[in-house]
Structure formats: C-alpha cells, structure tokens
Design a protein around this nucleic acid. Sequence first.
DNA 1: GGCAAAATCTACCAAGAGTACGAATCGCTC
DNA 2: GAGCGATTCGTACTCTTGGTAGATTTTGCC
Lengths: 188, 188
Amino acid sequence: MADREQLLTAAMRVIDAHGPEVTLEDIAAGASVSKPILYRTIGDKDALIAALSETLVDRINASVAAATAAAPDPAAGFEAAIRASLHTIQADKHLFLFVNGGAGSESFRRLVDRSALDMIELFGASRARAGLDPTPARTWAYAVVGAIQVVATMWVRDEFADLDDVGRDLARLIWSGLAQVGDTPAET
Amino acid sequence: MADREQLLTAAMRVIDAHGPEVTLEDIAAGASVSKPILYRTIGDKDALIAALSETLVDRINASVAAATAAAPDPAAGFEAAIRASLHTIQADKHLFLFVNGGAGSESFRRLVDRSALDMIELFGASRARAGLDPTPARTWAYAVVGAIQVVATMWVRDEFADLDDVGRDLARLIWSGLAQVGDTPAET
DNA sequence: GGCAAAATCTACCAAGAGTACGAATCGCTC
DNA sequence: GAGCGATTCGTACTCTTGGTAGATTTTGCC
C-alpha cells in the first residue's frame, strides 16, 4: 500500500488541491500514509522535489513534442513549444510553484540542469556543425530556461496578459536571439 | 544604536561572512542587537530580503551605469552592462543567494519586478515610438531578468566558464533577441 | 499456538521564525 | 535630587515544520 508511484501521484494530488505551501505532513496524510513511510519510500523533501520535477519536466516535454509535431516550420514549432510549456505549467501551477519554491537549494539547480540538458546538446551540436565554438551553448541554455521560468512564475502569480500572447512574445524574443546559434536552431 | 542603515550594513556583513544560509539570529548577533530589535527596526525576514534586494539592485544599477558610460556604441554598452551585472553579483554572491533563496514567496516577485521595471519602461517606450504595440515589453523584461538571474545563479554555484565569456555570450543572445523591440534597444 | 523478524506508527527532537512579558532605563514632575 | 509613569529592550518562550528513534503491531514460519 506504499508504492513509490502511488505516493508521488498522491503528493501531486495534494499539492494541486492545497496549493504549493503544503507541508510533508499534509502530503503524508493525503496519501493515507505515515510520515516515516513517506521518508523511507521517497526520501527527504529535496528528493521529493527532485522526483516531482522529473514528472513535471516529462509532462512539459510531452506537450512540447506533441505541439512541435504539428508545426509547419521550425519557427512556428518553436513558438508552439513555448506555448505548450506555458500551458502545461499553467495546468500544473501549484506543482510548478512547489517545485520552484524549494528554490534555495539543490532542487533548483537540478531542475534547471535537467531542463537545460537537451538544449545544451542541441545548441552545442549546431555550433559544432557550423564550425563554431560550442561553449556558449551552456550559457544560452541556462538563459532560455531562466527566461521561460521567470516569465512563467510571474505569469502564474498575476496573469498579466493572455497566455498565448505571452508565449508568442517570448518565443519571438528567444528565437531571434538564437538565430546566431550557428544554423537554424531547429525545433526543440 | 539601532539605526536601520547600520542594521542593514551589518546584515550584509554577516551574510557575506557566513554565507547565504545565515539565520536571523546570526544576523542579530552579528549586529550586536537582539532579535526583537531587528524585527522592530526592519520587519520580518521578507522585509529584510526586500531591503537587501533594493541595495543589491542599486549596486548593480550603479555598476551598469558606470560601465555603459564608457561604451563606444549601444551594443558594446549592452554587453558591458551585462558583464557589470554579473561581476557585481559575483562580488556579492552570498547576498545574491540569500536574497534569491528566500525565494518561495513575495521577495522573489519583488526582486524581479524591481529589476524589470526600468526595462519595461524602456522597451515599452521604444515600441511606442516605433508605432508598435507596447504590451510585449513586460514579457521581454521578465525574460531578460530571468535569463540573467538563472545564468548568474548557475554560474555562482559552479563557475562553469570564464565570467567575461559568459557575459559576452549572454549579451549577444539577448541583444539580438531584442533587435525586434522596435528600434535599437539603446543602452540599458 | 508461539516466536522471530520485518514493517509501521506514535511520539519525539531540532532548528528557526516570530513574539509576550518582565526588567531596566529614561524623562518628567514636584 | 527623589519618585513615578512611559518607553525601550532582552530573555525566554511559542509554533511550525523537517526529520527520526523506539515502541508496537503485523507477518511469516515452525
């Protein structure tokens, strides 16, 4: 009655219901499990955050993949990807804030690195193919992740504009910035 | 013996010396003041973070102003500005992490908003001058702040490359992205 | 049915944010 | 200069939350 998957699912349910400020005790209670079980099965709070980040990133990646598949050209695909990311974050906003809120520590670093990894590969490869120095890839990947992350965070708090407009603007900014990656950035 | 300025200065000293994990008790002790005094003079932790953000942003703005003044053209000025920001963050890295670490809540929002404010003005005005819709300004400002913030955070943790190179790469990315702001973004 | 081993729950600890209340100090009146 | 009221300050507390140890129950086996 204490499968890791079930616990994570329950944790997400509780976070979604009670907001990002939930305590581990709430989560344990919501999963009908005692605190030590939670700790034994998943680990400390940081481990929980890491696991949930994983799930969130997976969801984002899935929606991005679906969105880009239907796009006519790379630029449109990129915009669709950004929009999909934002929409997924919106759908899981409590989860996003929870995962982002443990910020101070390792969890944040891991989340950023996880999200940036594919981009580092991608940019680096593009640069290398074009005979350019691939080292900027990392900086760019972090920058892109940061841009999306902060825009999403601010948007989730006070929805300062229509989400699709935000996605469009953000996509344009990044896309033209990335023009210099080497060749066309290709769909994410 | 409990002037607000002095307390803030002392707080910065303690943070600088003991790292970003300091407790309010440490800070009070370091300022030779009791906890209630600290609370009465400055407020709760969030207020402290807000005040220190203010200072940090001021420092960054000052170094940016100094750096751009000496630049021959806008693009160079922008790069110099980014580099100056990064260098200031590096110099105050514990402060930066402290201010960033209380993240979960309001403090983060305020820091971002404060940093983004001038940019929103600037981008918005440029757009308006060019007869374009100024609403994207906010998204872009958040994106730029986010990019700098995350790159800085990641760099501060493990210095993955030479800081000036990072600054150059980051500046290029953002600069070319901002080309569409309307007319030349002008020096920050 | 009884016993050892494993899983589990209750009850606790530690640390840090924030505060109540008594103690000391200051200024004012006589 | 002495007494008294108001104000300021510091000690010592509460409360929340992350994390754990040891009692207790359950399980499997003889």
